[in-house]
């Protein structure tokens, strides 16, 4: 599904990713772990198309098609979703209105009519239920004044609404208490199926107790220095990152 080959990328001429190779197939969950500054968030931003970052070399393809020339919204229309480490507050736009705009933008790109209001509301209700979201958040300005946990839950709510092919969860566990973590992880698990894939980016192994990865990759200094199964996460938890360097 997603194929990254020899990716070198960075910001303002400075190289952060130094040759990433990654293959993700439908139905898989990949965890990317690594210490601070290893390039985890850069990788997620580059896949999602943040234009602040430059690509120096390499390629990223989705279903065999190069996506590096696509804008972030075009990538979203093709099914890529990034759950932000620090979701942005947008005062004046309610969560409901925002997600409606997003869904209808995607439908428009696919040549479909706007989703009828009734269907939209039904879907919003179901997905909010799935994430045990307090409905009052839906009519509040997007992320404005939300706690860290509420923001992350809102990210996964949006993911549930948009039903991406490839979801990238960037440090989704940070700011979540254990109950919220379970709810969010449960939501992610319920959304998994044989056709979609998930990349979980995390510093700690904690989240991976709830979202069980098929593969774990260790990112260090802009390179994947080790890949393995889910047991690698436990090993990292026990030994830290130093033994790999």
């Amino acid at each position: 599904m997603l194929s990254i080959k020899n990716l070198h990328a960075g910001i303002e001429g400075k190289e952060i990713l130094r040759g990433i190779n990654l293959e993700i197939r439908p139905g898989e969950v990949h965890a990317i772990m690594g210490p601070n500054g290893s390039g985890k968030s850069t990788l997620s931003s580059v896949i999602a198309g943040n234009e602040t970052y430059e690509i120096f070399e390499g390629e990223i393809t989705l279903d065999g098609k190069n996506i590096l020339d696509l804008s972030p919204d075009e990538r979203a229309h093709k099914g890529i979703f990034l759950s932000f480490q620090y979701p942005i507050e947008i005062p004046g736009v309610t969560t409901t209105n925002f997600i409606k705009t997003a869904i209808n933008a995607k439908r428009k790109a696919q040549g479909l009519e706007d989703l009828p209001a009734k269907d939209m509301l039904k879907m919003i209700r179901e997905k909010a239920e799935l994430l045990k979201m307090d409905r009052k958040f839906l009519s509040r300005s997007l992320n404005e004044g939300f706690s860290g946990g509420e923001k992350k839950r809102n990210e996964i709510f949006q993911m549930a609404m948009l039903e991406p092919k490839l979801a990238i969860l960037d440090e989704t566990d940070s700011g979540l208490d254990i109950d919220a973590l379970k709810v969010v992880a449960n939501g992610v698990n319920k959304l998994r199926n044989k056709d979609n894939a998930t990349i979980v980016i995390t510093h700690y192994q904690r989240l991976l107790d709830y979202i069980i990865p098929d593969y774990v990759h260790v990112l260090h200094n802009g390179k994947i220095i080790k890949s393995g199964g889910k047991e690698l996460a436990h090993e990292l938890e026990a030994k830290g990152y130093d033994w790999l360097k």
Binding site: N50, E51, A76, H77
Partner: peptide
């Protein structure tokens, strides 16, 4: 970028 990443 946040909004674009949601397809807007």
């Amino acid at each position: 970028f946040y909004m674009q990443s949601r397809g807007i």
